[in-house]
Design a binder for these strands. Sequence first.
DNA 1: CAATGAATTCAACAACCGTTGACTTAACCC
DNA 2: GGGTTAAGTCAACGGTTGTTGAATTCATTG
Lengths: 206, 206
Amino acid sequence: MTRATTAGRPASGGRRGRRPGPDSSRTAVLDSARSLFSEKGFDRTTIRAIAAAAGVDPALVHHFFGTKDALFRATLVLPIDPDTLFGVMDDHPGDEGRALVARVLAVWAQPRVLEQFTALLRTAMSHEHAQVALRDLLTTELLRRLAERVGTVDAELRAGLVASQLAGLALTRLIIGIDPMVEASDEQIVAAIGPTIQRYLTGSLG
Amino acid sequence: MTRATTAGRPASGGRRGRRPGPDSSRTAVLDSARSLFSEKGFDRTTIRAIAAAAGVDPALVHHFFGTKDALFRATLVLPIDPDTLFGVMDDHPGDEGRALVARVLAVWAQPRVLEQFTALLRTAMSHEHAQVALRDLLTTELLRRLAERVGTVDAELRAGLVASQLAGLALTRLIIGIDPMVEASDEQIVAAIGPTIQRYLTGSLG
DNA sequence: CAATGAATTCAACAACCGTTGACTTAACCC
DNA sequence: GGGTTAAGTCAACGGTTGTTGAATTCATTG
């Protein structure tokens, strides 16, 4: 419960000046921004809407973060430790695929992470900055580490295939909402997609 | 070469009134709109930019299509015949996965189709209309027909899994541009992803 | 060749957006 | 407790956007 203010619309009564009490309205702005960016994407989210959701004046957003792009970037300090993500693979030799999928689903279950990830995914579709950011994130953080673990000649292609299946899972399950993918249990997803990842990692691609 | 005008910026010299010659500037607007929607998505594409690319006044766009949403919808008369898409599966019994992937790649090779598809995908990320449109397109046109062909009890989940891998392929290869996925040849993609689709269709999901 | 209608442009409106600068109030430090 | 600094608001500017209505020119038909 780090949320300050009741997140209503105007300010606390319309008064001016500094707020009394433990005013962490900076994090309130960040939370509202994360939520709105995640829900509507970058372009359809206005600074005024963020400010209103945080119960704050629009000018305060600029006071804290400067520009809208900067606010978006501040939203994206990702709490996903790649080593934690891939470390689980070491614990299940021969069954890395299922382990990785289960891990990914567990990570997406964290609301904060889910919001950041969907916001990045949504924005990356039409905003060049986010597109580059997502590509770099996938390439350097994900693909590179995966390729290192695989070690074979076609490691990069294998890592790309893994990314493609996981990206498609995110798209159909989190963003677009294809019914059977949304309603399927985590266990069903792991059972269905795990072997695919396993084959992309270590199987034959011929 | 159905394109009219040289697609410059203003009009033909700045004159008023009706243009002489075979005025197919309506389709010029449609082409420009398709191209820009595909490149930048719905929100970041302005009617003024579309008009400029078509060498036409912004007001003409409204004269033809009314609202911006209507123009977008007019852009989306999809030339993908689902039966043509899935018909290829009948010709390769037991190898439907590879056949379907190859077919999908061939369809994406058509510039017109590629533009419409990427525009829809980009816009579906943040625009509710397009999101519903894409979901319905996938669900009724794609999943339903796929499910009919599969016929088993878990047909819907299987169709959803197919959609997830194909959507991820589109995302990484067409939109975000993950290097190994872009540079891979069609044959490599078919060889790698075809068996995945095959397993989702007819294999064991346990 | 006059008349009708459609194609096309011009100019502008109203709304909204991101951003800025001046101002006010509270918290904090010596 | 006075002074400094940061939090917070207000009002407004300049730009862009979707959209509209009137005016103008061409194609077409009788």
